[in-house]
Amino acid sequence: MSIPNEALQKLVQEIESRAVAAQQQINVVKAQITAKQREVRLLELTSSEISQLPKSTNVYEGVGKMFIAAPMTNVDKRLTGETKGLKSDITNLEKKLHYLETTHKNSREHIEQLFRGGERA
């Protein structure tokens, strides 16, 4: 049984649009992962620098255009919490990236299969 040319063309266009959309989303997710990894590195660097200071050192946190004195333990807890949250976000984004890459790969394979076979019994 042969697929009519119009139906085949419409099917190819639909699969191609899915592949293009998946590729665009892959690029966005990769950029998000990179940005979050950069934030994690910055937080870990800040945390390591703070941990080297004596516990009695005055620590200030930026709030808008001003700085507020904060206990070192609170600052360290905030940094640790933000790092854990970002790592969780990265894990979720990596799962999403894997899904999108699989979708893109499958779309490409379907297009190739349509061009190779064109017919299905």
Rank of each mutant, 00 (worst) to 15 (best):
L8C: 07
A35N: 13
E44S: 05
I50R: 12
P54N: 15
E109Y: 14
E14I: 02
K36D: 03
D76I: 11
L42G: 00
A7E: 05
E44A: 05
R108H: 09
V63T: 13
K10L: 04
G117P: 01
V59C: 12
K105Q: 13
E39A: 03
V28Y: 06
L53P: 02
H104D: 07
T91A: 14
Y99D: 06
D76C: 06
L43K: 03
S56P: 02
E49R: 15
A7I: 05
N74I: 01
Q37T: 04
T83M: 05
I90L: 02
V40H: 09
P71F: 03
D89S: 15
V40I: 15
P71C: 05
K96N: 11
Q13A: 14
S47D: 07
Q9S: 11
L11W: 02
E109C: 12
L114I: 15
R41S: 06
K87M: 03
K36L: 10
L45S: 08
L114H: 07
E6N: 08
L11A: 10
L100M: 10
Q32W: 09
E94H: 10
V12N: 09
E61M: 08
R108D: 10
K55N: 11
N106D: 13
P4K: 02
R120P: 00
R41Q: 07
I3Q: 05
V59K: 03
V29I: 14
I111V: 08
V63P: 11
N106F: 10
T34Q: 14
Y60G: 04
G81A: 06
E16D: 12
G117M: 14
K10M: 00
M72Q: 15
K84M: 07
I26L: 08
N27F: 03
